[in-house]
Design a protein around this nucleic acid. Structure first.
Lengths: 207, 207
DNA sequence: CAGTTCACGATTGTTAACAATCTTTGTCAA
DNA sequence: TTGACAAAGATTGTTAACAATCGTGAACTG
């Protein structure tokens, strides 16, 4: 989610065990769950590798988000008022603060989390789960194909979407979200994919 | 998916092991995956139980499907012609055959599978996965709250939806699907929930 | 007789050793 | 020098024993 692990990075069980100080069983359970979400790939007898989506998968993710998120935001705007939006308001503040301080990983994480929290605002468990999966996947894709500068969402688009929702302007909110998604997708460069570094999982050690 | 296991049925590891002739590890892996999909619930130190959705969860599932499936069908109808619909055509035939022979479990399974195959027709991995999760969940709910006669989808609605898609009538297809989902949801009786039988998992033995 | 406590049995969670598989390295021959 | 082959090392998959936890029922006390 924070793009600290490059795609194709090998996640060795032994390494993860000592990194997190856990038994092999825990690690294997976690890897199995991650693979069921498509975040890593489990190769039989070969180990776990961070998923490395190709162009076609990237298109699928954005197609899925284009299918779900616009109606979602539209619905949010319509039923705004019955819903608690303070979580989203607070979130925008967090994003601004992180941008202020130029905290890269934090910005990336919050940028994705905004969309997750949009789904959470529907207080629908299933919609939330689906969006979370699509958002984390998007993180991987942006990490792979994204130009370095716009690794996150454009600055004030989140804020504008939220304002449209608050003013119950469903049409505008939906339109803003569509352009927002388009901006992200258009910011990708499908040609020059970054070389998947076979970095050790020691990156995680900084926790 | 076939409603052969009632909600709240306990799935004991030992029982599953001998039923399927597998080691405990395999069983636990399977249970973990099922629980990650919300089909069963893993209670710590107490075991695995078939999920027993309540009314609020049922509403969430249908709300999620209402959000996703209409745009999905609309998109299918619009891009029909570029897509291979033979799978769906064949599927309708299977449904008819099963109804002819009055094979209850088969009808139920195929009834859900139609919606899954709708998603599959988009050839979008993520849309497919999401719909499959929602459809299996719907199976559970219909099994719990459904009146006995209309445990499956009304007879010809699937066929009509498909025809609308084939004739590229996006508006009609979307409308038919919405009514279809409404029919299913309205056929539920939220008051009288069937008593969760604590049947042994021996039901599965008939395989 | 009701309620509580304790101990037993059953079930799940964990650990550690073992087996199977793959990757790598080194050697040999063409 | 290159290719194939084989053995060693490392990593994953599996099994079985052990530990921890929970539910149940009997015994005991008020």
């Amino acid at each position: 989610m924070e793009q600290r692990l490059a795609p194709n990075t090998k996640l060795s069980e032994a390494r993860l065990c000592e990194t997190f100080g856990v038994g092999r069983m825990r690690v294997r359970r976690a890897l199995l769950l991650l693979s069921s979400q498509g975040l890593i790939e489990l190769q039989s007898n070969r180990g776990a590798y961070v998923a490395c989506p190709d162009e076609s998968e990237a298109n699928d993710v954005f197609a899925a988000r284009m299918l779900i998120e616009p109606p979602l935001v539209r619905q949010l705007a319509q039923s705004s008022g019955d819903i608690d939006l303070t979580v989203l308001i607070d979130h925008i503040a967090l994003e601004d603060a992180a941008r202020e301080k130029n905290e890269r990983t934090e910005i990336i994480r919050l940028s994705g989390e905004f969309h997750t929290k949009l789904a959470q605002a529907t207080s629908n468990k299933f919609i939330f789960r689906m969006m979370r999966e699509l958002v984390t996947r998007t993180s991987l894709i942006v990490g792979l194909f994204g130009s370095s500068e716009n690794a996150s969402c454009p600055d004030d688009e989140h804020s504008n979407i939220l304002k449209a929702i608050q003013s119950k302007n469903a049409e505008l909110a939906e339109q803003l979200l569509i352009s927002h998604l388009n901006h992200i997708q258009n910011g990708l460069d499908m040609e020059t994919r970054k070389e998947p570094q076979d970095d050790l999982a020691t990156i995680l050690g900084s926790n």
